[in-house]
Computed example of a mutant assay.
Amino acid sequence: MSQNITYKIYTMCMVQNGSKVLLMNRPDSKGLPGYIAPGGKVEFPESIVNGAIREVREETGLVVNDIIYKGLQEWCEPSTGLRYMVFNYLATSWEGELLQDPPEGELLWVDIQDALKLPMQDWFRERFPLFFEEGTFEHSDVWDREADLVLDSTRRKYRDKALEIGM
């Protein structure tokens, strides 16, 4: 029996300035309340990285220059056929000024060491340190929405082997 599969593709981009990162405090009315990095839905047919760059610009006013792919976070719901994918990036340089009245929530530069003390969604709290580790990550959960139960979980970290052998 075949099932209709729906793919939802999103991005998240952590903007880093030395020991600080830019987070936004999303209000309850926007969903996913608490502190989170900029990001959102990738529009068809834009590339995933261009979607990340656009989302940072729309939500913060900054245009990121140096952007590094950090990893994939995904959730699959077998009962609904939904695969929700978030491609994660780290930006370490940008141009522009922060928006005075950002659309998604108040913007705050916060020290990386203090960020996890802020209120945030559990999935973002788990992912946060991975932006600053060497290499990339892959997190995948198969989730039973009705039972609110994770049926299967994959956690992987990848290092760049070419760097290890001096290439």
Rank of each mutant, 00 (worst) to 15 (best):
G51L: 01
T60E: 10
L23N: 02
W123A: 07
M14R: 06
D101V: 14
L22A: 03
A162H: 05
L98H: 04
Y35T: 01
Y158A: 09
V63H: 09
R83C: 04
I67A: 03
W143T: 02
E43S: 08
D122C: 00
G81E: 08
E43W: 05
E126G: 05
R159L: 14
Y69I: 02
I67P: 00
W75M: 15
E104W: 01
S29H: 01
Q100K: 13
L151V: 09
L116T: 08
L107C: 05
K70A: 09
S19G: 12
V49M: 09
D144N: 12
L23F: 05
S29R: 06
P27D: 01
Y10N: 13
V142Y: 07
E43H: 06
I112Y: 04
L23R: 03
M1H: 12
R54E: 03
E146Y: 02
G18Y: 08
K161H: 07
E59M: 13
P102N: 11
G31A: 01
K157R: 15
V150F: 04
M85N: 05
P103E: 03
W123I: 06
R145N: 05
G96F: 09
D148M: 10
P103S: 04
N25D: 14
E77C: 13
E46C: 07
K8I: 04
G81F: 05
K70Y: 08
D152F: 03
K161E: 11
H139V: 06
T6A: 11
L32S: 09
G81H: 12
G34V: 06
I36G: 01
G96K: 11
V110N: 07
L99F: 04
